Simulated assay, not measured.
Amino acid sequence: MTRDKQLMMKELPETERPREKMLEKGVKALSNAELLAILLRTGTKNLPVNRLAEQLITKYELSGLANISPPELSKTTGIGLVKAVTVIAGIELGRRLSLKEPGERPIIRSPRDAADLMMAELRYETKEHFVALLLSTKNHVIARAIISVGSLNASIVHPRELFREAISYSAAAVILVHNHPSGDPMPSQEDISLTKQLVEAGNLLAISVLDHVIIGDGKYVSFKEKGII
């Protein structure tokens, strides 16, 4: 059985061997399934590794693989715990690389800048994360502070938690960011009410709340663009 698994990749046609394809054409030429197949390394006696990778992506999508646990993934036929750990570690490494900031602090010039900064970090979270981007007088991001992590449908935010962070970093302004696990970034009435409450509290402290950006699955809504702030 072990020998059979080792031969699975060799038995594929040349054009279907992802490692050889990457060496010949470069990593950007590979599909998501082919990249996943490289992490998996082998399939089963009856299922080539490329097909196994395709089945995983069909079943979970990349967003699902980013959140599944190794024990759960290892329940799939052809994937033991070692393979599951390897796959999830590879996906997490890619996610962290996408979050890596350049040496210079990013500047927020538009709602799109805020959304781009937080999209990779928040779009696949299964709970609501409420984050504050703490800004200098020139809108450089001083820090990103997680204010709360809520349930599937709601997060609990109190003004004192938000502005304690802003004051500790001597922030001149803040941008609120949170995700909707449903993937739909349209604000709820609770989102709007909370935002207005935080804007009022910021005015009392002379710390401007410049925007509230809600992150969905690859899309966002800006309260500033919508005229809510």
Rank of each mutant, 00 (worst) to 15 (best):
A143H: 14
G26W: 09
E165Q: 15
L47E: 13
S222Y: 04
S98I: 08
H180Y: 02
Y169L: 08
D217G: 12
N139C: 12
D211T: 08
G227V: 07
L39V: 15
N67D: 02
G183P: 03
R51N: 07
V209T: 11
P185M: 13
V174K: 00
A132F: 12
I147N: 05
N153L: 13
I68E: 04
I147H: 04
K138Q: 14
V177P: 06
V213M: 01
A29G: 10
S148C: 05
G150I: 02
P13Y: 11
E54S: 01
P18Y: 03
E61Q: 12
A114G: 13
E225D: 04
P111A: 03
P111N: 01
S188T: 15
K219E: 10
N67W: 04
E16G: 05
L93A: 12
E72K: 05
R112G: 07
P18M: 01
Q197A: 14
L56V: 00
K25H: 14
E161Q: 14
S182G: 09
L7E: 12
T86Y: 00
V157P: 00
S222Q: 01
D217K: 08
S151N: 13
R144T: 11
K5A: 06
G43Q: 09
M8K: 09
R51T: 03
I146G: 00
S193I: 12
S188M: 10
L65M: 04
V157H: 03
L198W: 07
A33N: 11
K83I: 07
